[in-house]
Design a binder for these strands. Structure first.
Length: 469
RNA sequence: GGUGGGUUGGCGGAGAGGUUACGCACCGGAUUGCAAAUCCGUGAAGACCGGUUCGAUUCCGGUACCCACCUCCA
C-alpha cells in the first residue's frame, strides 16, 4: 500500500499521512461564496483536492473517504444582488431572491467543476442550513470565556487562545503593529474577530440570544466541519490566501469550542493562480471565469491538465501557450489509447509521484514516459488516476461525422492529385488540412488522420468545398 | 513595517548531495515527390556571493529580484 506524504502547513514539514480512522478518512475544503461564476483561481483548490480524494480512495478504498466542501451563502454580495433584483421589480421576498441567486450560482458551479472532471464531494453543506449550529458554537465560546458580546456583536477574544497565530506564523503583536484597518471601538483587542453581527431590517437575519443577526464568515466553516466530520478530522484545505485570517480563526474557534479535540490534523494550502504573472483577483480586474474558458473552446480536460502540470504549492501562471500544448498532448494520448482497455492498475511511477505530496507534474512526466514506450494500457489506467483520459471527458477530441466525411473526400482528392503528380494541388490540400487543424500522417498502409490543437470545422468545410466535396 | 513563499536549459516544469528528469521548441539522421507525423540521436540549466563537503543546482548563511498574506478574495 502506498504511503501518502503531504506538506502540512501546521507543522511546516512534509510528513507521512496517517488517518485518524483508515476506514473513514475525513477532509474539508473551503468552498466558494456563491455570489457569481467561479473564476479560474477557484478551480485550483478544487482540482488539488480532487486529486487528493482520488489518491485517498485508491489507497484506503472507495468507501473509506468522506469529502466535505461547503457553499458560503451568507454574504453581502449575494444580498446586494438580491436587493438589486428586488429593486428591479422581481417578485418574491428578499429571502426568496437570495435563495434564488444562491441556487443559480451553485448550479453554475456544479456545471463548471463537472466540466473539469472534479468529483462531487460527499457533502456540500450550505451555511444557511447550519446557522443553528453556529449559534450553538458561539454560545459555547462565550460560556467558556473565549468570546464576548459587545454592542449586539459577538467577538472572539484572540488573547484567550494561546496558539492564535501559530498556523500563519505570526504573533498577535506583530499583526497589530502592521494592521492597516480601523479598529472598531468595542473590540477588546484589535485582532478580535466577529462571530455574530447584527442585521438591519432590510437584510436577512436569524434570531439569536444576541438579537437578530447573522454569523461571521469564519464560524460557518467551524460549525459545518464539526457537524459533518466531527471535532477532529484528517485534512483541511484551501488556498494559501485563506491561511490568514480565515483558517487561523477557524482553528481558534474550533479548538476553543472543543478543547479536547484536535480539529484538523493536516492543513493543505495551494499557492495562487496567476495570469500573466499577476495574481488573479477581483480588485485587479484581471480574472476570468472557468465558463469563459469553456465558452472559448478550451476543453475542461485541457484546463485540468494545465492545472495539474504545476505542483500545487507553487504559483501557477495560466497562459494560452500552456493550454495549446496541453491540448496537443491530450489529443496524441487519446489517439494512442483509442480502443485499448486500461491496465488493471496505474503505473507504480505515477502512484509514487502522487504519493509524494501530490506531485502531479512528476506524475505527468511518468505518463509521458508510458506514452513514449507505447504502453497504451498503462497510460490509460495511470492517466485516469489523475482524472484524465476519462471517456466522459473526451467529447472535445472527437470529430463529428460531417468532419470525418469531409476529410475522407479530401484525402481521396489528395491521393488522386499525387498519383497524377499534381503536387501543387496535393500540397494545397495538405496545407489546408494544417490550417484547419487536421493532422494527416502518411503511413506505408495509407494516410491516417487525427484532429490537432485548434481544429476548426469551418475551415475544414471551406476546404472541402474548394476541392469538390 | 511584520510574515510566508519563490528564483532550474530557448520556454514550461520535477526529483535527487555524486549517474539522462520529463514535455515543447531547436539541431542531425532515417523516412517522404517535398513535407507532416513517426523512429533514432546530439546539444542545452539551476539568480548572485560565501560556507560545509572528497564532491552542491541539491544542505547552511547572506545579497538581489519577484510574488503573496497582514483588507472581501481559492
Amino acid at each position: 500500500m502506498a504511503q501518502i506524504r503531504l506538506t502540512n502547513t501546521r507543522t511546516r514539514t512534509k510528513e507521512d499521512f496517517v488517518p485518524i480512522d483508515p476506514g473513514n478518512v475525513r477532509l474539508y475544503l473551503c468552498g466558494p461564496t456563491v455570489y457569481d461564476r467561479a473564476h479560474l483561481g477557484n478551480a485550483r483548490p478544487v482540482l488539488v483536492f480532487d486529486l487528493l480524494v482520488r489518491m485517498l480512495r485508491h489507497v484506503y478504498g472507495a468507501g473509506a473517504v468522506t469529502y466535505v466542501r461547503n457553499f458560503t451563502d451568507v454574504d453581502d454580495k449575494i444580498n446586494a444582488e438580491a436587493q438589486r433584483r428586488k429593486a428591479a421589480g422581481r417578485p418574491g421576498t428578499l429571502e426568496d431572491l437570495i435563495a434564488e441567486r444562491s441556487d443559480e450560482t451553485i448550479g453554475w458551479y456544479h456545471q463548471d467543476m463537472d466540466a473539469l472532471g472534479a468529483l462531487r464531494p460527499d457533502h456540500e453543506p450550505r451555511a444557511t442550513a447550519y446557522v443553528g449550529q453556529m449559534i450553538e458554537m458561539t454560545r459555547d465560546l462565550i460560556a467558556n470565556g473565549h468570546a464576548y458580546e459587545a454592542e449586539r456583536h459577538v467577538l472572539f477574544d484572540v488573547r484567550s487562545f494561546r496558539d492564535y497565530g501559530k498556523l500563519s506564523g505570526r504573533s498577535v503583536d506583530d499583526m497589530i503593529a502592521g494592521a492597516r484597518v480601523e479598529v472598531a471601538p468595542y473590540k477588546r483587542d484589535p485582532m478580535d474577530f466577529v462571530l455574530w453581527k447584527p442585521s438591519d431590517a432590510d437584510l436577512p437575519g436569524w434570531d439569536s440570544p444576541w438579537g437578530r443577526g447573522r454569523p461571521g464568515w469564519h464560524i460557518e466553516c467551524s460549525a459545518m466541519s464539526a457537524a459533518l466530520l466531527g471535532p477532529s478530522f484528517d485534512i483541511h484545505g484551501g488556498g494559501i490566501d485563506l491561511q490568514f485570517p480565515h483558517h487561523e480563526n477557524e482553528i481558534a474557534q474550533s479548538c476553543c469550542a472543543h478543547p479536547d479535540a484536535g480539529f484538523a490534523n493536516v492543513w493543505l494550502h495551494n499557492e495562487m493562480l496567476q495570469v500573466e504573472g499577476k495574481k488573479m483577483s477581483k480588485s485587479l480586474g484581471n480574472f476570468f471565469t472557468v465558463r469563459d474558458l469553456l465558452d472559448r473552446g478550451v476543453p475542461g480536460e485541457v484546463i485540468r491538465f494545465v492545472m495539474l502540470s504545476t505542483h500545487y504549492r507553487k504559483p501557477m501562471d495560466w497562459t494560452d501557450a500552456k493550454a495549446r500544448e496541453a491540448e496537443a498532448v491530450l489529443r496524441r494520448w487519446r489517439g494512442l489509447v483509442a480502443g485499448i482497455e486500461p491496465a488493471p492498475s496505474p503505473a507504480p511511477a505515477v502512484i509514487d509521484a502522487l504519493s509524494d505530496d501530490l506531485n502531479s507534474a512528476g506524475a505527468i512526466a511518468a505518463l509521458h514516459e508510458l506514452a513514449a514506450k507505447g504502453d497504451g494500457a498503462g497510460l490509460l489506467a495511470s492517466a485516469r488516476m489523475l482524472g484524465l483520459l476519462l471517456p466522459e471527458m473526451g467529447g472535445w477530441a472527437e470529430a463529428g461525422d460531417a468532419a470525418a466525411d469531409q476529410i475522407a473526400v479530401l484525402l481521396a482528392a489528395r491521393l488522386a492529385a499525387r498519383q497524377a503528380r499534381d503536387f501543387a494541388t496535393a500540397d494545397a490540400i495538405r496545407e489546408g488540412f494544417a490550417a484547419a487543424g487536421v493532422e494527416v500522417k502518411d503511413t506505408p498502409q495509407g494516410p491516417e488522420w487525427s484532429l490537432a490543437a485548434g481544429f476548426d470545422p469551418a475551415r475544414l468545410a471551406d476546404l472541402a468545398k474548394a476541392h469538390g466535396a
